[in-house]
């Protein structure tokens, strides 16, 4: 029961992130909102799955995926925004 609630909480975070990429008109704001909220939703959803399945080989593997994605997600966003900044991409004011 607790696991289901945590999973739906994670879905709510991801949903807020998807609203963010349509709501904002500036590229840099969009990148910030999408990446941060998405990462939080990711962590919450996977913790919910671990709570639901208990401690076994499955949850250990899920934990490995979580740790890898936690490292990779900010790196990718940083790389994309740095590429936009160096190329001189200008966006509207927010």
């Amino acid at each position: 029961m607790i696991g289901t609630i945590i999973i739906y909480l994670g879905l709510a975070f991801v949903f807020i992130g998807v609203i963010g990429i349509y709501r904002f008109k500036n590229f840099y704001t969009r990148a910030l909102v999408a990446s941060k909220v998405d990462t939080v939703g990711y962590i919450t959803l996977i913790i919910g799955i671990i709570v639901k399945s208990g401690l076994n080989a499955f949850s250990l593997k899920v934990l490995l995926i979580l740790s890898i994605s936690l490292l990779i997600n900010p790196l990718v966003t940083h790389s994309v925004v740095r590429s936009a900044k160096i190329s001189g991409y200008k966006s509207g004011k927010e």
Binding site: G17, I21, R30, S35, N73, T77, V80
Partner: peptide, 13 residues
């Protein structure tokens, strides 16, 4: 760059 950001989001989902 919007498209690259979207590709990242689709992958994570």
């Amino acid at each position: 760059w919007d498209r690259m950001l979207g590709l990242n989001l689709v992958t994570s989902k």
